[in-house]
């Protein structure tokens, strides 16, 4: 490759729903090999942005590239390079964990023998082997996140896009997911994930972007963004939160 493409490049992505603007023109460059955190409060447009970036939601304007391949013009190539774990989206949850992995693997055009081997390894590492023939619909929230991650990892994508991978996950599973992601990034992969858990982002990420009201407010390496303060202080200042004065809600104490 003569030109080094960014792992994920977004240009002017915009989306409006029923008159409300969800995302108002997002530009972002995720360097290859980086561990990128997309921060934002609830309703900031994180999920909408990531959905448009991976081809799940057609943007009103703008485009997205994965390693130089346009997601909306050349979806086949782009999707081959991507591993995606959407949030708030059901899995095909009437399958067992193993069946779900096999389904996703074959859907990606993988060799059945490779699917078998990788599925067994993933189930083992993610401690999902014990679930046996339990359907994914009966999994706990943490187990669902883990099987979703396994589905995204199965075909060995170059870029991993995860929406809220740490939400509703207990500390043990969270540590496991962190380990796997760190190993994946160390092996040359790129991870983009959205979150509003500051500790995780500070610990893992090389780069962050703060998204609020549908636009990027701060972007850069983690040191550039946080400066000499904590990430949480920067985040609250950018987003503009309010603190309770103690006057209201007095009826809560009796």
């Amino acid at each position: 490759m003569t030109v080094e493409h960014p792992a994920l490049a977004l240009r002017g992505l915009a989306k409006r729903f029923d008159g409300t603007i969800a995302v108002a023109g997002v530009d972002l460059d995720v360097p290859a090999g980086s561990f990128y955190g997309l921060l934002g409060p609830n309703g900031a447009g994180k999920t909408t942005t990531l959905s448009m970036a991976v081809g799940l939601l057609r943007p009103d304007a703008g485009s997205a590239w994965v390693l130089g391949h346009d997601v909306w013009q050349d979806p086949v190539t782009a999707k081959r390079l991507l591993g995606v774990m959407p949030d708030g989206v059901r899995l095909f949850d009437r399958l067992t964990g193993a069946e779900l992995l096999a389904y996703n693997g074959l859907l990606r055009g993988m060799d059945p023998a490779v699917v078998d081997q990788r599925a067994a390894e993933l189930l083992d590492v993610l401690a999902l082997g014990d679930a046996g023939r339990t359907l994914v619909v009966d999994y706990s929230a943490g187990m669902k996140k883990k099987i979703g991650l396994a589905c995204a990892l199965l075909h060995g994508p170059r870029v991993l896009v995860l929406d809220e991978p740490f939400e509703a996950v207990d500390p043990v599973s969270a540590a496991l997911i962190r380990d796997i992601l760190t190993r994946y990034a160390a092996g040359g992969g790129t991870v983009v994930f959205s979150s509003h858990v500051m500790e995780v982002v500070e610990r893992l990420c090389s780069h962050v972007a703060i998204l609020a009201s549908g636009t990027i407010k701060r972007v850069g390496t983690i040191d550039e963004v946080r400066g000499d303060r904590s990430l949480e202080q920067v985040f609250v200042e950018v987003v503009g939160g309010r603190t309770a004065t103690g006057e209201e809600l007095s009826w809560l104490s009796r």
Partner: peptide, 27 residues
């Protein structure tokens, strides 16, 4: 549903029910 243990065969073999056993192991 009771979590039945003793899974036999690989993940791919588990996915295919008997009615669809004839299908190629592809997309």
């Amino acid at each position: 549903a009771p979590a039945r243990r003793g899974v036999d065969g690989g993940a791919v073999a588990q996915l295919f029910p008997r009615v669809a056993g004839w299908a190629r192991r592809d997309r």
